Amino acid sequence: MTAFPRTPVLYVLLAMAAGLAGSSARAQSAVTDGQKLAFDRGKGNCLTCHVIKGGDLPGTIGPELKDIKSKYPDRNELVAIIFDETKRNPQTMMPPFGRNRILTEQEISAIVDFLQTL
Rank of each mutant, 00 (worst) to 15 (best):
L13I: 11
L14E: 05
M16G: 11
A18C: 13
G19M: 10
G19P: 06
L20T: 12
G22K: 08
S23V: 08
S24R: 14
A25F: 11
A25W: 14
A27E: 09
V31K: 00
D33C: 04
G34P: 03
Q35F: 01
Q35C: 03
K36A: 14
D40P: 05
R41I: 15
K43L: 14
G44V: 06
C46S: 12
L47M: 15
L47H: 04
C49A: 09
C49Y: 04
H50D: 04
V51A: 11
K53Y: 06
G54C: 08
G54I: 06
G54F: 06
G54W: 07
G55H: 10
D56M: 07
D56V: 10
L57N: 12
P58V: 05
T60M: 08
T60I: 09
G62H: 05
P63A: 09
P63N: 11
E64Y: 04
E64D: 13
D67Y: 03
K69F: 01
S70D: 10
S70H: 10
Y72K: 02
P73E: 02
D74A: 05
R75Y: 03
E77R: 14
E77N: 11
L78F: 02
L78Y: 01
A80S: 12
T86Y: 04
N89Y: 09
N89M: 08
Q91S: 14
M93F: 14
M93Q: 15
M94Y: 09
M94A: 15
M94D: 13
F97V: 06
F97S: 04
R99S: 14
N100P: 05
L103R: 11
L103W: 04
T104R: 01
E105Q: 13
Q106I: 07
E107M: 07
I108Q: 01
V112P: 00
D113T: 04
F114E: 01
